[in-house]
Design a protein around this nucleic acid. Sequence first.
DNA 1: ATTCTCATATATCGGCCCTATATAGACACG
DNA 2: CGTGTCTATATAGGGCCGATATATGAGAAT
Lengths: 186, 186
Amino acid sequence: MQVTTLCLGALVFGEATGYEINKMFEDGPFSHFLDASYGSIYPALTRLTDEGLVTCKAEQQERRPDKKIYALTDKGRQSLSEALHTPLAEDKFRSEFLFAVLFAHLLPRSRVVELVDQRLAAMKAKTEELAAKDPGDTPGMDFARLYGHAVYSASVSFLENNRHLIEDIAVDDKPQEASREVHTHV
Amino acid sequence: MQVTTLCLGALVFGEATGYEINKMFEDGPFSHFLDASYGSIYPALTRLTDEGLVTCKAEQQERRPDKKIYALTDKGRQSLSEALHTPLAEDKFRSEFLFAVLFAHLLPRSRVVELVDQRLAAMKAKTEELAAKDPGDTPGMDFARLYGHAVYSASVSFLENNRHLIEDIAVDDKPQEASREVHTHV
DNA sequence: ATTCTCATATATCGGCCCTATATAGACACG
DNA sequence: CGTGTCTATATAGGGCCGATATATGAGAAT
């Protein structure tokens, strides 16, 4: 699914600028399971305008570059609908953490512990973030939020209960490093 | 983290050809949380060879193109270690299913049900796949497998318990479509 | 018997996309 | 009064995926 389609989706929720669409992917309702950035959003909006799937009205601002406000056309709405009726791609999941875990036996224990701690903190933050119900959310957003919450909760539980599995296969911290640290403290 | 680093990781488990490395991402131990394809793997291996991070010995085969077997050098092993000691990128998760769910109120109920069914089937397949312990797996792979199993299980449970939330906001199937189907049956 | 598909194996092209950067004014904080 | 952050658009460079090309052998289907 291309960024153009994602932009059409973003505009279902109302007209918006490229900047605002970017925020939806960065911080907003899409941020947890989609990504797109300026480098793809602006060209996408230009293409969509050329193809008549969105309209673009430039709002003149004093001493500022024009704000370009994009809105869906009927053709655009129909195009999105078609995309949602064709087979969807499977979820893509990419985790450098799990990649690193594969080499836990090559890493000092302190590094593995650090990685798990960082990840656990990030996961807990996400869980909390997704626990808060926003009254402005649509039912679809609500479902996605609850889904994410369920998955992140499971993730946190697993990590807490099983972190020892990889921490115990990591190698002991190098003696010279440990002693160096001690010395600086003493 | 670039594909070059991923290739270094793949070669920790033993020497391999580009084709075999691709399989590790396609079907093998990496497939659940990483991806890379020919278009990036072959150029990566060339770059790594040029930089002395891997060696390449060509094994001549009768009536076949040479098989190029790559192996890690000490420099390569060190480079991987360095990569694992620098801050890792956060997990990336991309789900067209959740994107589609945001527009459940614009889709016919039958389509939403279909999407959930497909996804549930895919998730269950993954869960089963990850339930099987392979004696050849390293402890790191085992951890990653169990992690995936926990997350996918939670995902299946959530979907089964909450699918009604989005199915109930979908619009009724269009009368003319429904009646058309009925007519063809009658 | 023959055809078709799948598996082995390498490699590249086109196009999409991310990262980083440039530009520029408003506003707040110290 | 500088520094950083927010609004807002845009592009260049480079990385990566998907599709395709090339060869051949094995096994399945017809």
